[in-house]
């Protein structure tokens, strides 16, 4: 794959901006860690050796208690099993993840009422929420859901925005005029309120909420794409492609898009932040994903309803701030890497 030297230069420039570059690395590490959250925050053990057989319960079907000699046939309580193995020393071996809780379990302490303060002894390093669920688990799994949601949202709205914007710029004329009017009308509908109304009548799912949000946010990119496409269409290399017999589709995808969308990468980090914020806001208001989905917005809501238990609000606010700050650093660095002033050639 031949990489355009201009692209290479931009990447070098980005890498040279240490703050943005390290933010990207850190963000990438966080996303990677959350994708494999089951390996380090989970109530399922990583490895159990029972009577000579090896079990890897993390991924895959649940293992009933009877598998390990317990007398119940619903999912094994691995923490209790770990205690049992420690005491009985019967040759079995169990390896639990770093944080042995999943984001849904209600872990109640006899005689005390939740929420419980952070405690290394209980391995609730950030404490629990009002239903006794581990906060760190809910943060990490919630982060995963928020990032995937945001990326999925991005994929849809960018694809729609880029395609329609490019078509508007390329074909112009009546198609452009009519589509512009439609976009103007759609842009004026207060999307967040409509989503809230819909969500109070029908509880949305992950996919339906993403599609709903995408329906109100795809318009943003069309303006940029339209102007850029208009400009490119009149350039001679497009006429040259025509003279070679290229189809409209080929001209748009091979010639116009590569020359216009490079700069969209500068929007990308901010769109990701916007997606995370949108989901968090909706969850905070109660119009987002249904309980008991782990969500930063829901954690924030619990926190503000119970300000006296500071660890709930503190965790949610810190996590959200960290992610948004990182994203902003990345976005700034990308923008600077694309700054044309350092790339103009004079002949």
């Amino acid at each position: 794959m031949i990489i355009n030297p201009e692209t290479r230069k931009r990447w070098q420039r980005f890498k040279s901006l240490r703050r943005g570059y390290f933010s990207l690395l850190l963000m990438g590490a966080m996303i990677f860690a959350s994708l494999f959250a089951e390996l380090w925050i989970n109530n399922r053990a990583l490895l159990v050796v029972h009577q000579g057989h090896i079990y890897l319960p993390t991924y895959g079907d649940f293992l009933p208690g009877t598998t390990f000699g317990e007398n119940y046939d619903w999912e094994t309580n691995y923490r209790a099993l770990a205690e049992k193995i420690k005491i009985e020393k019967n040759g079995d071996f169990i390896l639990m993840p770093l944080i042995p809780y999943n984001p849904f379990e209600n872990d109640f302490i006899e005689g005390e009422y939740p929420p419980y303060a952070p405690s290394a002894h209980n391995k609730h390093y950030l404490g629990t929420d009002t239903s006794g669920r581990d906060i760190l688990a809910r943060l990490v799994y919630g982060f995963r859901i928020a990032i995937l949601f945001s990326l999925f949202l991005l994929a849809i709205s960018y694809t729609a925005g880029i395609s329609i914007g490019a078509l508007m710029g390329y074909f112009g004329g009546k198609f452009d005029l009519i589509t512009q009017r439609i976009i103007e009308i759609l842009s004026n509908i207060p999307g967040l309120y409509v989503i809230m109304i819909i969500a109070s009548i029908v509880t949305p799912s992950f996919w339906s909420l993403a599609l709903l949000l995408a329906a109100f946010s795809w318009m943003g990119l069309t303006w940029y794409m339209r102007t850029e496409t208009y400009r490119e269409v009149n350039r001679e290399y497009v006429t040259a492609a025509h003279s070679l017999g290229a189809s409209h589709l080929r001209i748009i995808t091979h010639h116009i898009l590569p020359n216009t969308i490079a700069i969209l990468i500068t929007f990308f980090p901010f769109s990701v932040a916007a997606g995370i914020t949108a989901l968090t806001s909706l969850d905070y208001l109660g119009f987002g994903l249904p309980a008991p989905t782990p969500s930063w917005g829901e954690l924030l809501q619990q926190g503000t309803d119970n300000l006296e238990y500071q660890w709930i609000t503190a965790s949610a606010v810190t996590a959200l701030s960290l992610v948004l700050i990182l994203v902003n650093f990345i976005g700034e660095a990308v923008r600077e890497a694309f700054d044309p002033k350092t790339h103009t050639f004079y002949e």
Binding site: Y72, W74, E75, F104, E105, N106, T130, S131, G132, R133, S200, I201, T203, G286, P290, A291, P292
Partner: peptide, 28 residues
């Protein structure tokens, strides 16, 4: 009521029942 329902939901899973929680506006 959400706090009460999420606890009930967890134990119901042991019987193999999956409870989905649908919170709506009171009028809705």
């Amino acid at each position: 009521h959400t706090d009460r329902l999420v606890v009930l939901r967890q134990d119901a899973r042991k019987a193999g029942i999956d409870i989905e929680l649908q919170l709506l506006d009171p009028s809705a």
